[in-house]
Design a protein around this nucleic acid. Structure first.
Length: 916
RNA sequence: GCGGGGGUGUCCGAGCGGUCAAAGGGGCUAGCUUGAGGGGCUAGUGGCUUAGUGCCUUCGCGAGUUCGAAUCUCGUUCCCCGCACCA
């Protein structure tokens, strides 16, 4: 069978027949996968997700459910835009990269160059890649309904997103405020990890310090800290004597801080004006005041203060900071530590104890001091209770988190001061990256408690597969707070009430499965008519069709259809995707659904699969080990890929793509085709056995797929059944019964649909196997005794082999002794709980005397077995087979008709064996 | 640091209170197949023992719960992933 030709043939047939465009009839299943981003080609890792979803969708379809599995394309955001920018600028690495990408699909160099030139327009990039991705998906045989495709740049989609944001604002979750970001000084743009040089290796985070304003001279000495709760224990301030400090006007106040710290303030949304510069030693010896108490704090010199870090001013808490304690001691400055935290296992001045314990004598013991700080901070954080901390006294340290900072800020005594976790970051463009506080940003406030509660409720009613990921969702829901939802740059939808902002690309992709239900109907309409009233009616059922028609100018019938579509298909029954989407996209998905839709339209289930690696390594451009998706149909075959993906690893395990693995599966696939095509005719006693095996397997096979145990499904339905079929032929089976064969093809069609369609057609199956009905397990076909007999034969073969190995010679003849009836009786009664005494009441057993007592112990360990007559019959039936296997005569008798040690050893399910 | 998840035999990997010396592959070993093979088939692959058996040791490390633990609890250690304006 030519796999390529067969795959092409059936993909075309499916399309011609519109096989996967469902009708609104009967029970429905709506399954979605996040749409791909279209800045480049997809690789074989991406398709794992779509393959598993497709498998599931195909199974649902075989159950006779109206199954909708649509697909669209994501173009929002900055990457596509930057690609076009860089192509326009003629950057070599981008041109080379995209030339390669295009080359995957366009072998004609001239045409490829023309495509490349067109990429100066972002839309051309998006159009090209959405087309080729769609083609890739088709070549893998995904049962997608393509009639509903769209991109997130389509006018209708933008109307939908605008509506969504209006409703979010109505719900009161849109807020505005400032936001700290990494910022490129050249591009004047926020930059993410991807834009920063070595951003994947360095910590590109921003840390929010609390800058505390200590009244000082005519203004404030500003000290930054991560532990504002220790402020009540501050005894003095530290400055670096040899560094440069400034006096400056900041937001109308007078501040004193390091020159380096001052330089960052301008970016942090402060109005600044330098007044005077001077060396730090001019500050030493002066006095500041605690902002929370009347206490006077001397300003002292210290060389451990880094003037380039934060404000270059640190407040000193000798009772809890070993560094401060040691520095003060070394200075010989007479201050008493002021304890503010009580920690079990420590006295009043923990810092002193830790230092003594580690024998730290001078500030020179850097490592020791670090260790001491680490130990103490840990103990104080987890076990400490604030003892003397104004309104916070009595609160455990780990519970106060940002409370102290918030309290100080609200009183104007402190403010945020942002510090990059790694200093001196550089943008890919070469310019310096600074922390910038952007004012007037729009946020979605996922921190809203009522909203969180709703989202938790939404999660609670959902199935999460694997269930173990629920904890991650719960954590993500708790952790999520305000998220900036609009940017100044990028493709997408303008914020409807402030059009200079573009809605950020994860925020425009939360409830879009709903849009699949409208896309094909509104595509040809004037997008301007898609006013909010249309979506209010179609998606929320608000108002009437007539009112919406009037408000929009759209036909009444159209509005009715929209609502009908939505009502029929919503909610999403399954959203399947890869684990990395969990903490972002999927969590937003839950939040937004929980907020905008009534409970009946909340999502039903989410399933997650792990990623794919190649030969144990992540695929990446830099490693040059990426296999483009287009290679699957060219070099491997869609069904081979699907089989490998489904059977190679559990959904929640990383799957490793190896050439050897592929070859193994390829052999099995070809062997399957050969077996299935194996001509033959006639019946054999093995037919019933094979039928029984099939229906036994079938009994809970559907649950494997329902439960996303695709690996188990593939193992049983494909590999397991193949073994059975091989055994069937080995044991003298003539031909797989036709009806059984057809059922097998149906069962395997979600997994390897093309091959199954072809084989189905050759077996004169009616219509498409993809649209057939999943076979019902037939209890009448299941014959446990028959299977048990065959198991017995198998075990006996093993045992004979074992013995032959030990005796190490060619057998002249093998005798098989089936255990005497009384052993079967005892065995069964022991399984029912009978004890030896009761059993001995039976004369037939008592007659065996000691042998019965010995067997009693033994029988407890034996698995269930059929009766002696069945076992005798099974072995008799297998005689010619066994003789062929071992190349010698086999004799089967009941142990009753024999004597000797071997015959006496016979047990239920385990005949005695004598090799002569 | 915070949050989530893991450490299983030569390797990958299933198992998640008894049916576990532990599925399934890969590798390795042996036999068969011999219109050549690196292909196909069959068997073996912790130790000792044995005519198909039995025993011992083993599932990161240490302790515990239990008649019984790879599986549950606690501690410990190592590893992976996420931490936001990035799709």
């Amino acid at each position: 069978m030519d796999l390529h030709a067969v795959e092409k043939k059936w993909q075309q047939r499916w399309q011609e027949a519109q096989a996967f465009v469902p009708l609104r009839k009967g029970k429905k299943v709506f399954v979605t996968v996040p749409y791909p981003y279209t800045s480049g080609p997809l690789h074989i890792g991406h398709a794992r997700t779509y393959t598993l979803a497709d498998l599931w969708a195909r199974y649902q379809r075989l159950q006779g459910k109206a199954t909708l599995f649509p697909m669209a394309f994501h173009i929002s955001g900055t990457p596509i835009l930057s690609v076009a920018d860089r192509i326009r600028e003629g950057r070599k690495e981008t041109l080379d990269l995209y030339r390669d990408y295009i080359g995957i699909y366009e072998p004609d160099q001239k045409k490829a160059e023309a495509v490349l030139r067109s990429f100066t327009e972002p839309k051309a990039v998006a159009d090209f890649f959405s087309q080729v991705i769609a083609r890739d998906f088709q070549s893998l045989g995904f049962s997608i309904d393509w009639t509903r495709s769209f991109t997130t740049g389509d006018p209708a989609y933008r109307k939908f997103i605008a509506w969504q944001f209006l409703r979010l604002r109505d719900a009161g979750v849109i807020t505005r405020g400032s936001h700290a970001v990494q910022f490129c000084t050249r591009d004047q743009n926020a930059v993410g990890e991807d834009d920063i040089r070595d951003g994947d290796l360095l910590d590109t985070g921003i840390e929010a310090f609390t800058a505390v304003k200590f009244p000082f001279r005519d203004g404030f000495l500003v000290a930054a800290t991560l532990r504002p709760e220790t402020l009540f224990g501050a005894t003095n301030l530290w400055i670096r004597p040899d560094a440069t400090y400034v006096k400056a006007r900041v937001d109308g106040e007078i501040w004193y801080l390091s020159a380096a710290g001052f330089a960052t303030l301008g970016d942090q949304h402060h109005t600044v004006k330098e007044i005077e510069r001077f060396p730090g030693k001019k500050l030493a010896g002066s006095e500041a005041q605690s902002p929370v108490e009347k206490r006077i704090l001397p300003v002292l010199p210290a060389d451990f203060v880094d003037p380039a870090f934060a404000t270059g001013v640190v407040f000193s808490v000798p009772a809890h900071a070993p560094e401060d304690y040691v520095a003060l001691r070394n200075l010989g400055f007479p201050v008493e530590p002021i304890p503010v935290i009580t920690v079990p296992g420590y006295g009043p001045v923990p810092a002193k104890e830790v230092c003594d314990q580690l024998h730290i004598s001078s500030a020179g013991d850097r490592d020791q001091l670090k260790e001491a700080t680490r130990m103490l901070y840990k103990a104080e954080f987890y076990q400490g209770v604030l003892a003397r901390a104004g309104p916070f006294s009595g609160t455990p340290v780990k519970e106060i988190k940002g409370q102290v900072a918030a309290w100080l800020k609200s009183r104007g005594k402190a403010l945020d001061f942002f510090v990059p976790k790694t200093p001196d970051l550089v943008c890919r463009c070469g310019a310096r990256v600074v922390v910038k506080v952007l004012p007037d940003q729009w946020f979605i406030n996922y921190g809203d408690p009522a909203w969180k509660a709703k989202t938790r409720a939404c999660l609670k009613q959902m199935a999460i597969i694997p269930e173990g990921s629920r904890a991650s969702f719960e954590a993500a829901i708790e952790w999520l707070h305000e998220r900036a939802c609009a940017r100044r740059r990028g493709l997408g939808t303008a914020l409807p009430w402030d059009e200079q902002w573009t809605i950020e690309s994860l925020s425009d992709s939360t409830i879009y499965p709903a849009f699949y239900l409208l896309a094909h109907l509104v595509r040809d309409q004037d997008a301007e008519k898609l006013v909010p009233a249309v979506f209010d009616f179609a998606l929320l059922g608000k108002g009437t069709a007539a009112a919406a028609a009037k408000a929009s100018g759209l036909p009444l019938k159209l509005l009715q259809s929209l609502r009908k579509e939505f009502s029929f298909w919503y909610p999403v029954d399954l959203r399947h995707t890869a684990v990395p989407h969990l903490t972002n996209h999927l969590t937003f998905y839950l939040f937004t659904h929980a907020l905008l839709f009534p409970e009946q339209h909340w999502p039903k289930a989410i399933s997650l699969n792990e990623l794919l690696v190649r030969d144990g390594h992540k695929m990446s451009k830099s490693k040059g080990n990426v296999i483009p998706l287009a290679d699957v149909s060219r070099q491997y075959s869609a069904d081979l890929y699907r089989l490998y993906i489904a059977s190679g690893a559990d959904m929640s395990a990383v799957i490793d793509w190896t050439q050897e693995g592929i070859e193994t599966v390829r052999k099995r696939l070809l062997a399957f085709i050969e077996l299935a095509e194996r001509a033959g005719s006639g019946k054999s006693p093995m037919d019933a056995w094979l039928r029984s095996r099939f229906h036994t397997m079938l009994q809970d096979l559907g649950q494997d797929i329902e439960g996303f145990r695709f690996r188990s499904y593939a193992q049983r339905a494909f590999f397991g059944m193949m073994n059975d079929v091989a055994h069937f032929f080995r044991r003298g089976g003539k031909a797989i019964p036709g009806d059984l064969l057809k059922d097998w093809f149906i069962v395997l069609s979600p997994l390897i649909p093309h091959v199954c369609e072809e084989l189905w057609e050759r077996q004169d199956g009616k219509g498409l196997v993809s649209l057939a009905r999943w076979p019902r397990p037939d209890p009448k076909a299941v014959d446990p005794a028959l299977e048990a007999g065959e198991d017995l034969v198998g075990r006996t073969v093993q045992d004979i082999r074992e013995i032959l190995k030990l005796v190490d010679r060619k057998p002249g003849k093998v005798h098989l002794y089936v255990a005497p009836d009384w052993k079967y009786v005892m065995h069964r009664r022991i399984a029912d709980g009978a004890d030896l005494k009761t059993l001995m009441a039976d004369p037939a057993i008592r007659a065996q005397g000691k042998a019965a007592a010995v067997f009693f112990e033994r029988a407890k360990k034996l698995p269930a077995a059929a009766g002696p007559a069945q076992e005798l019959a099974a072995l008799h039936g297998a005689r010619t087979f066994l003789e062929r296997e071992f190349g010698c005569p086999i004799e089967v008798v009941s142990a009753l008709q024999a004597t000797g040690a071997r015959a006496a050893k016979a047990e239920p399910g385990k005949p005695g064996i004598e090799v002569v």
